[in-house]
Amino acid sequence: MAQESELAAISVRNLSIQYGDFAALQNVNLDIPRNQISALVGPSGCGKSSFLNSLNRLTDLIPGCRVKGEVIFQTQNLTDSKHDVLSLRRQIGMVFQKPNPFPQSIRRNFEIPLREHGFSKKECRDRMVEALTQVGLWEEVSDRLEKGAANLSGGQQQRLCIARALALEPEVILFDEPCSALDPIASAVVEDLIVSLRERVTVVIVTHNLAQARRIADQLSVFWVRDGSGTIVESGDAGEIFQSPSDPDALNYLCGARG
């Protein structure tokens, strides 16, 4: 166990998520390895997004949502209600399906979170430049930092969101279908960017695009609905699972998409 959690950035044990009486997710166990890309796939409504949201406690925002089980991150259990969620969310960043920069200037998009976490104006600027450079956006926007982020294209906005998450230097970044709202070209740019992030952060990505999962994932987990609630039916090395899934549902799902 100790050995495992050294390798894993996040270890999930017996996780269940309930919305009122409805159990969205039951008995999920998963180790998310450090500096790899873990992809979560499966049909809609099988709890992938709920799972993702429980990793940075965004589930707190949903009324009537209860999370049971353990999520071990840096030897601490995240589901503990006393855990400091603010610093947790700084360490585990998130990028959403729809690009959602704050509708203010590009600079403010960095300043708001960075100032909150105690950085000086100077550090804000340095980190902004560094993060924008990493996502390849610096050249494109360096002359209009004071302009509204809403004027950027969809792909640029999504890269801005990724840069904004990177600027906080998180350990893990969660991606919730980051490419599904983008056109194919922008989608390819963002996908390449995610692959390049692997060296510095752990990536967890929910995607409906199996081709994308096949291209980028190191680890793959297939979610499925069993007995009315979602769970993981197959999990492990992405290449192996795509080759020969052992679970029949996973087989159908992956092959159906293949054919």
């Binding site: 925002l61 969620v85 700084r90 959403f96 979170p113 909150e116 998450a165 906080l168």
Partner: peptide, 9 residues
């Protein structure tokens, strides 16, 4: 949602 995900108070 995005603001919360960044750990803002």
């Amino acid at each position: 949602l995005s603001a919360t995900a960044m750990g803002l108070r």
